[in-house]
Structure formats: C-alpha cells, structure tokens
Computed example of a mutant assay.
Amino acid sequence: MSETKKKETFGRTVGFVFIICLVCAALVSTSAVVLKPLQTANKLLDKQTKILETAGLLELAGDDIVGLYTQRVEAKMISLETGKVVEGDVNSFEERADARDPAKSFKPENDIASLNRVAKNAVVYLVKDEQGKVTTIVLPIVGSGLWDLMYGFVGLESDLNTVKSVIYSDLKETPGLGAEVLNPNWKALWPGKKMFDKQNNIAIQIVKGGAKAGDVHGVDALSGATLTSNGVETTLHFWLGEEGYGPFITNYRAGGLN
C-alpha cells in the first residue's frame, strides 16, 4: 500500500471515529435533557411515598400516592434558627445540596451527627386527617452511620413527642447488620415511644442488649451494628435539638403555625 493511501485510510478512520463520538455525545446530552423531568418526578414520588409510609397512610394510598399526598400532606419550609415558616420551593429542596453552599448553611457547634454543615432551612410535613386536623408531623433526618450518611423520616404525633414511626432509606449500611434499620421488626419497635421526658429533655435512647419492658424512651439496638445504632441515636438527638428542629417544635407547640 502506498504512503498516500495509508494516510487516506488513517484520516478516514480518525474522521469516522470523530463523527461517532459527536453522535454519541449528542445522544447522551439529549437523553439527559429528555429524562431529567422523569427522574425528577420519580424522585419526588419516592419522597411522597416515604412520607405517607411514615405517617401510616401508605396502604390507604394504594396506587394513588400523589392523590392522597396532595389531599393529606402540607409541606412547609422553615428556618431552623427561628422555627418559623419561610419562602421556598418545598418540592425541589434538598438539605445536603444546600448544606454544601456556605451561604445557605451553617456549621453546627455540636455536630454529634457528623454532618459538617447543615442547611439553614428545612422542610417539614404536616399530615392531616379527613377533617383537616394535623395528626402527624413528619421530619426529615440525616446523620452518619457506619459507612455513609443515612437518610430517613421521623413521624411524630401532634404533641411532637410521641413517635408514629421512624423510616430510613438511601443508606449503605451492611446487609444483615446496620441495614436492619429497614427491617419491619425493628421499625415496629418505634410507635408509641417518647422522644422527650417530662422536663422536655431529649430522652430517646438506642439500648444495647434491648430496652426494658415499659421503657418509653428506649428502643432495642441493632444486633452487631453498634456504630449504626449509635448513628441513629445521635441523629435523632441532633435533629430534635436546638440546632435542628428544636425551635420549630417549640414554635409549633405554642401555636406558631396555626
């Protein structure tokens, strides 16, 4: 083969590869644009599903998650500092995204949940009965487990003390150990527990070896998963405290949102 033909063959090959790369890049970009609304909708649906589950309404929803959520749940964006309602898009808000922005976050003085930074705002969910009365308040929580951050929701009755449920999702804990936070048997230990004592101090505890009968503040620790169990406890203590939902709880109990 002549030198000229070799150059022509090489040039055509490079040109062909370049065209293929452009086409693939265009397809990937187009797919990302086209699929983004669907991904956003699915993410919102997953959040709505978890909130209804936390409020004990998931079975009632059946196939109409969005319908029941729209009918029964009112989302409010609040300032963690004041506990009062502020303006914001409650559907697109992501605590960790805001936490990465120094202008929208703060560094907690008592970072027992190992978050490094926390968003200044949060979204709380007021779940109502058919008569429009608030029966459950769902609070999003996040804190460190063994391997990574664990995300979940705490459902409290309208006294903002009695537990309705604690639901975790989006976690990377060890199957059979830390991942047992997803086990229905462990989740069934939470309803009726009290987060605060009579002096309004945070009293909920994850008890290694098992909580004693009648202990309204104790929940059995996860067997073989000490760090995950500790993570659940410190996460709850942080988010129920003054740098978390504490001001909101005080404000709500005083009728600040009514």
Rank of each mutant, 00 (worst) to 15 (best):
T82E: 10
G218F: 06
L126S: 12
A41F: 01
E87Q: 11
V232Y: 02
R96C: 03
N161W: 02
R100T: 07
D148L: 03
Y69H: 14
K6Q: 15
I112A: 05
R12N: 08
F196P: 01
A211Q: 05
K208R: 14
Y125L: 11
T250A: 09
K194T: 08
T174K: 12
D215C: 07
G15K: 11
V66P: 01
L68H: 04
I206G: 01
R72A: 10
S31K: 11
K133E: 13
V124T: 14
A113R: 03
P108H: 02
T250M: 02
T9L: 14
V66M: 13
N121L: 05
T228Q: 04
V86A: 05
L22Q: 03
N121P: 08
E3V: 13
E8R: 14
M195V: 15
I202R: 02
P37K: 14
E130V: 13
E243R: 04
V163E: 00
K198E: 15
R72G: 03
S144M: 15
V124M: 06
A32V: 11
I141R: 00
G176A: 05
G15I: 03
N183I: 04
A225Y: 05
G192R: 14
V123H: 06
A41Q: 15
L171D: 10
D159A: 03
V73D: 03
V216T: 11
G210F: 08
L171N: 15
L57D: 00
Y168F: 14
E59Y: 07
A188T: 10
G246Y: 02
V73R: 09
